[in-house]
Design a protein around this nucleic acid. Structure first.
Length: 994
DNA sequence: CCTGCCCCATA
DNA sequence: GTATGGGGCAGGA
């Protein structure tokens, strides 16, 4: 039972018979707090849940050791705590663990209590200034192991895994999991001896260990496996093939070295208490019972009293002095606290929370707790259910309705939501509680004869939809999805309109734009330390790839249910951050409502004239053939004009023309600007190349490609908008990209002409005039610019007039052109280098222009300096509506990279505010048109332009409505100090409407 | 077949 | 000088 004092002083060295248990007290208390149900002292509501968990664990380990077997009790035992937040690591890297939020209010009083508990059980309670608990644990473990003793570390902290070895084990009592070398390999992909190398590369967002950007645990393990250790890798970083990875390894080499220092535990702390002094002594019964009685832990008090022979009745409860706790004076308050505590969501709870769920917990604390809990909870794909009966589906739906929230995901036959056929759906109602409902899986064995038949045991699609539809449309059930627009579109095509909803991709985007991707796999790595099954693994890739309906149902369940499970877990991490980080309004006004707006636009599509494009392709081909013949004749040989390499050899090798710019990889550039310069020197060939390139581009990218996107049923082209792929808040368009349809050249505009209204209808194009300069004038508060916009002046001419002192009347077009280039340059975060390139000036001349500009508009320079300062201190900048754009690497020591991030940061609030404004207009547009009883349909968005299709006889009525919505889009949240101006026109095709 | 590079279309 | 997506080529699988 209780081991009597087994060692006498001097208790110096341990022996091979000894067993040292080291409890990581600081981690334990946080994890116990989040993992265990909240508990308060009956008499006054003192929160004691974590302390109770700690005492139980301590007692069990002291009396039983790791196993209930006789003789497994420890000979030495210590609980180690962090002394204070600041350690030697902060001298190496000031930001280390700087992100740590304040602990939750109801945890604070438990810090002292847990130390009291340790002493009450007569166990060594160790902490030492300047060192983390981990370093002390490392030092003691090393000393004991070197002496031949067995060591068990009680912790769930991955940072301690580097210590694991033949004599040193680790156990997570909270999860009942033992960590040996195999578990370390599973977690880090390398053995314990290489863990620090991996951590140095991968970093740790929770502890603020920077690592190397773009490298996570997976990549780090692979690199370390290949190169051996960090230094070997850094020494040969230039041999890494992936450009971005190579650059990052080179650029962030020092950061990786610092990270390595941060994660390396110190094994030679000059400990104040010698390891021999950690010998277990018998528990002082009355002392322990007095303490437990004070906390009103009845069961444990009785158990300890029995084991030690102490008389409970005779022992007075200890009078505890509890810092951080104020005994409430009224019973009402106690009840309130107790109920609130009981309400607190725990890791295992599935309480639907629109927040705040936890009284006494700040939003920041809740968000931090959720982040920690999410990583602590393992994901077990084995528990997912395959739903094959209507009854089970009804049960899941009932569960979702009861819970009030459900993560939802569709599995389909295509990535294109407009073509995708539903194959199955997955649901999750709580972490780990997820299912997959196969609906249209077919026999994978299908050869030419058989196969293709529906797999047995699936619920008929129509019946399943009838059960799902009420839940998916139920206003009382929050549907959570990752990239909901896709699922929304698919389900809309099956007659289901999902609402209300949250989208984890958009949550991530609104919180972390610029910090990395927002895809599910990446988010799962970042927030759950989890790698979901790759799609490749269930469906194959390349030629062997099959559609999801061919995937065996058991594999499909593991994959699909996991997606719903992961989505739900991500939501539990990300949603609380909205409030904590003050981003709820941005999410709710600029992101979430865009989902159905864009989905409807995509579903409508736009008509393109296939015959017209086909003719154009023929014309372009003819033009190219003619030019090709001339080019080959001039070159004196036949070569592939489309190959920049071959072209460079001809121009700068064979023909000996003077090369201008070099490309990144050292080859001569053959870009238009270089070819134009050569043409200006009188060479004939380059201009023909430019002409050929233009035709080639128009043909391959547009006239050949666009018809292939015409939907077989709707006969229209349906682009896909991405809401979350730019740092600034702009949308992007792909498959096909309809945001880069040519407009600048006559030839290019022929493509645009092929975008047409259907018969009896017109296209309306409405675009904001100079919206970015107007936004800049407002944000930087520039009097001349504001006045010019108020007066409706030509802004570029006004700029030229201010700068060069010439009258606007009869201005030289060249002078205006320069001013225009400068205005654009300002928006892009101007540099003399860039302006010189744009205007064909010397760097010095361009620099003089910029100087003059700043003298005339000092407010612009002040604004730019303020933005730079902001991005360097905060790591992000914001738009007028509060959207954030993050630049985590802006503080790099690489000067040109740093300047690049600074320019991006200057541009982001301008571009992003304009993007916010048009988003607001789009969110309101459908309702405004409906209210005016108009049938206009919004089809496309091109950053500052919206394209509608309208019945011919409604054109005149529609234009004013569209214009009003767009021009007043900032209201009522914000009134700009400059007017917004919208130009709108209608025509049969996009070119003429624009 | 995949990836990086170059070039180029838009705002 | 900002923000994107995409086609063709070339090299390494």
């Amino acid at each position: 039972m209780i081991r009597a004092m087994s060692k006498t002083s001097p208790a110096s060295a341990l022996t091979a018979d000894d067993h040292l248990i080291l409890v990581d007290g600081s981690t334990f208390i946080f994890r116990a707090y989040h993992a265990l149900p909240p508990l308060t002292r009956k008499s006054d509501g003192l929160p004691v849940g974590a302390v109770a968990g700690f005492c139980n664990m301590l007692w069990k380990l002291l009396t039983e050791g790791l196993t209930p077997e006789e003789g497994d009790e420890p000979t030495h035992f210590a609980v180690i705590f962090d002394h204070s937040a600041k350690t030697f690591r902060n001298d190496i890297y000031p930001a280390y663990k700087a992100q740590r939020p304040e602990p939750p209010e109801d945890l604070v009083p438990q810090f002292g209590l847990i130390r009291e508990a340790t002493r009450a059980f007569s166990v060594a309670c160790i902490e030492q200034e300047g060192f983390e608990a981990d370093d002390l644990i490392a030092t003691y473990a090393r000393q004991a192991a070197d002496a031949g003793a067995r060591v068990t570390i009680v912790s769930g902290d991955k940072d301690l895994m580097q210590l694991i070895g033949p004599r040193i084990g680790m156990i997570d009592t909270m999860k009942n999991k033992i960590f040996g070398e195999a578990e370390v390999v599973e977690k880090f992909g390398v053995g314990p001896d290489k863990v620090i190398e991996v951590q140095a590369l991968a970093g740790d967002s929770i502890d603020n260990v920077p690592g190397v950007p773009g490298i996570g645990i997976k990549t780090a393990a692979q690199l370390i496996g290949e190169f051996g250790d960090l230094e070997a890798l850094l020494a040969r970083a230039d041999t890494i093939k992936q450009t971005k990875r190579r650059e990052n390894l080179i650029e962030f080499a020092e950061q990786a070295r610092i990270s390595r220092k941060l994660v390396t535990l110190k094994q030679d702390v000059p400990v104040e208490t010698p390891v021999g002094d950690l010998a277990v002594t018998s528990v002082d019964g009355p002392k322990a019972v007095g303490f437990l009685k004070a906390l009103e832990f009845t069961t444990l008090t009785r158990r300890v009293a029995e084991a030690t022979g102490a008389d409970i009745a005779a022992i007075e409860p200890l009078d505890l002095d509890i810092p951080g706790w104020h005994r409430p004076d009224g019973k009402g308050r106690q009840m309130e606290r107790a109920e609130a505590a009981a309400d607190r969501p725990t890791a295992a709870s599935s309480a639907p929370d629109e927040l705040p769920a936890a009284a006494g917990m700040t939003p920041q604390a809740l968000a931090a707790a959720r982040a920690e809990a999410a990583k602590a909870e393992p994901i077990d794909r084995g528990v997912y259910e395959t739903v094959t009966s209507l009854d089970r589906l009804k049960a899941w739906v009932a569960e979702a309705v009861e819970t009030g929230l459900v993560a939802f995901d569709t599995e389909t036959t295509s990535l294109d939501a407009m073509q995708a056929e539903l194959v199955g759906v997955s649901l999750a109602t709580a972490p780990g509680k997820a299912c997959y409902v196969p609906l249209a899986h077919v026999d994978g064995e299908g050869d030419l004869l058989g196969g293709g038949g529906l797999v047995e045991g699936q619920i008929p699609l129509a019946e399943a939809l009838d059960v799902l539809r009420p839940m998916l449309e139920d206003a009382g059930v929050l549907k959570i999805a990752q990239n909901l627009k896709y699922d929304w579109l698919v389900m809309a095509r099956y007659g289901v309109e999902i609402a209300p909803y949250d989208d984890t991709m958009l949550l991530s985007y609104v919180l972390d734009a610029g910090k990395g991707g927002n895809g599910m796999d990446e988010l799962a790595e970042r927030w759950l330390d989890h790698t979901p099954i790759p799609f490749k693994e269930v469906a194959g890739s390349g030629k062997a790839m099959v559609t999801f309906d061919k995937v065996p149902i058991d594999k499909a369940t593991a994959y699909a249910a996991e997606d719903a499970d992961v989505t739900l877990r991500l939501w539990r991490v990300l949603k609380p951050r909205l409030v904590a980080e003050r981003m709820a309004t941005v999410y709710e006004t600029l992101e979430r409502p865009m989902v159905p707006v864009l989905a409807r636009m995509e579903r409508r599509g736009i008509s393109v004239d296939r015959q017209m494009l086909s003719r154009l392709s023929g014309d372009f081909a003819q033009g190219m053939a003619a030019l090709e013949a001339e080019i080959h004749a001039l070159a004196g040989e036949s070569f592939n004009i489309g190959s920049p390499k071959q072209l460079g050899d001809i121009l700068f090798g064979k023909m000996g023309l003077p090369g201008g710019k070099k490309t990144k990889t050292g080859a001569w550039s053959t870009s238009v600007s270089v070819l134009d310069d050569l043409a200006a020197e009188g060479h004939e060939l380059p201009s023909k190349i430019v002409a050929w390139r233009q035709l080639s581009k128009l043909k391959s990218t547009y006239s050949d490609a666009l018809p292939s996107y015409i939907h077989p049923e709707t006969k229209r082209v349906h682009t896909s908008y991405s809401l979350a792929s730019t740092t600034t808040g702009r949308l992007s368009s792909s498959e096909p990209n309809l945001q880069n349809i040519p407009v600048r050249t006559e030839e290019g505009r022929k493509i645009r002409k092929a975008f047409v209204a259907d018969k009896g209808r017109k296209l309306i194009s409405a675009d904001y005039s100079q919206i970015e300069l107007r936004v800049l004038a407002h944000m930087a508060d520039i009097p001349q610019l504001k006045q010019a916009f108020a007066d409706g002046l030509d802004i570029h001419a006004m700029t030229a007039s201010e700068m060069f002192g010439v009258p606007i009347e009869g201005m030289d077009p060249m002078v205006r052109r320069r001013a225009k280039a400068i205005n654009f340059g300002i928006i892009y975060g101007i540099s003399a280098f860039g302006l010189a390139a744009q205007l064909g000036l010397s760097r010095g001349e361009a620099g003089d222009y910029i100087k003059t500009y700043f003298e005339r508009f000092p407010g612009i320079r002040d604004y730019m300096e303020a933005i730079k300062k902001e991005v360097h201190t905060k790591g992000y900048v914001t738009t007028v509506f509060g959207r954030k754009a993050h630049y985590p690497d802006v503080n790099t020591s690489n000067p040109s990279l740093r300047a690049f991030y600074e320019r991006a940061a200057i541009n982001a609030p301008i571009q992003g505010s304009a993007a916010d404004i048009i988003r607001r207009a789009m969110v309101r547009m459908d309702a405004a048109l409906a209210a005016a009883k108009l049938d206009a349909e919004m089809l496309l968005q091109v950053h500052d332009e919206l394209i509608f299709e309208v019945p011919e006889d409604q054109v005149e009525a529609t234009i004013p409505v569209v214009r009003r919505v767009m021009e007043t889009a900032t209201e009522p949240a914000l009134t700009l100090s400059v007017p917004l101006q919208v130009d709108a026109r209608a025509a049969d095709n996009w070119d003429e409407a624009h």
